[in-house]
Simulated scan of single mutants.
Amino acid sequence: MGKIADRFTTGLRRREDTEVSQRGRLRIISWNLLHRSGALAGDISALIERHQPDLFLMQEVTGAIEPLSVSAHGQYYTQSWPGRRHGLAVWSRTPLQNPRPLELPSSKLPGRLPTRFAQVLEIAGLTVANVHLSHGQILNRRQLRLIARSTEGPTAIIGDYNSFGPVVLRGFSDVGPRGSTHHAHDLLPFRLDRCMVRRLHCSNARTLLKGPSDHRPILLDFRYPGDARP
């Protein structure tokens, strides 16, 4: 019975992946929710209803977002970070192959913060990495290089980069919105939320209204290259 159920689930996932690719578009929203006093499940559900994404990537996710698994029709996958009260999560309109954690390089200095992980998932022949990178400007670039080496084919690395200035990653292009996505202490604007892609074309990239978080959500539309169709 278990094997029959597995075959049914695999077949359903392949059919839904094909439906996504046949539309020729994959829409993704990414948002750092601000874990202390930021966005809640209702805020995310409202964006899903309004913008109809295929994937909704989240950073600084706590248990307060768990009602999203009921309020928004789709699949909800969380990824906790050891030693932290918040982690990563993704909402998907269709079932995904189990998203996997990818351990990222960490600081060796005394008193360093716990190790960070990326959340890596596959959809319709594409790889998407949901990230909340470290604040260290050398360290977060090392983390990006590891993600690039650990993936292959059409790939998008999306989330809170915590990076200042240009980011160069061999084989990847920066296609995220160019405007600021975060205001430190409501004063200094920074472009922290980004997207870098390999062998993908982004046809639309923009920021959305900030809402209750200190970050703006970013919305991205991708067109499938011919070799990315399953």
Results as ranks from 00 to 15, higher is better:
R93I: 00
P99H: 09
E103P: 07
L192Y: 15
I147C: 01
R25N: 08
A46W: 02
G111K: 01
I65E: 11
R14H: 11
L187I: 14
D193L: 04
V175T: 11
H132S: 09
A228L: 10
L55Y: 10
R199I: 00
G211V: 02
S21G: 07
V90G: 09
A5C: 03
I218Y: 01
A39L: 07
H35E: 12
T155M: 07
L33C: 10
D186C: 06
L219V: 01
P230Y: 06
V90W: 09
I48Y: 02
Q143F: 04
P114S: 02
P189K: 03
L68S: 02
L104T: 09
E16K: 14
S173F: 01
V70T: 14
R223K: 06
E16W: 08
Y161I: 00
T155S: 08
K108H: 05
R194G: 09
R14W: 04
L187T: 13
M196P: 00
V120C: 08
P166I: 04
A124V: 00
I48Q: 03
L96A: 08
P230F: 06
R142S: 14
W81R: 15
W91S: 06
S107L: 06
E103N: 05
P225T: 14
G38L: 02
L192M: 14
S213N: 09
R149G: 01
D174F: 01
D54R: 08
D193P: 10
S21T: 07
A228P: 10
L104Q: 11
G83E: 12
L102A: 03
L109P: 00
G136C: 06
T94K: 07
Q22G: 00
L40K: 13
R142M: 13
A46H: 12
R84M: 15
R50S: 05
N130S: 04
L188N: 03
S45R: 11
I65M: 14
V168I: 09
A46D: 15
G179E: 15
H132L: 07
G74R: 06
L169G: 10
S71Y: 01
P53E: 05
D54P: 08
V61L: 06
G171R: 06
V128T: 02
R23W: 05
L57N: 10
D54S: 12
P217Y: 01
T62A: 07
E66G: 00
R216E: 08
R199C: 03
F222P: 05
L113D: 12
R84D: 15
L104D: 11
C202G: 08
T18A: 11
Q143C: 05
L192D: 06
P82M: 02
G38I: 02
L34F: 10
R14I: 05
S71G: 00
G136Q: 11
I4Q: 10
G74A: 05
W31G: 06
L121D: 04
P114W: 03
T10I: 05
R198K: 14
R141Y: 01
I4T: 12
W81K: 13
N162D: 07
G159P: 08
P217T: 03
V90R: 09
R23H: 14
S180H: 12
L26E: 12
F117C: 07
K3S: 13
P217A: 02
E66T: 14
R93M: 02
V61A: 12
V167Y: 08
F190T: 05
R27Y: 00
D186M: 10
E49T: 13
S203Y: 09
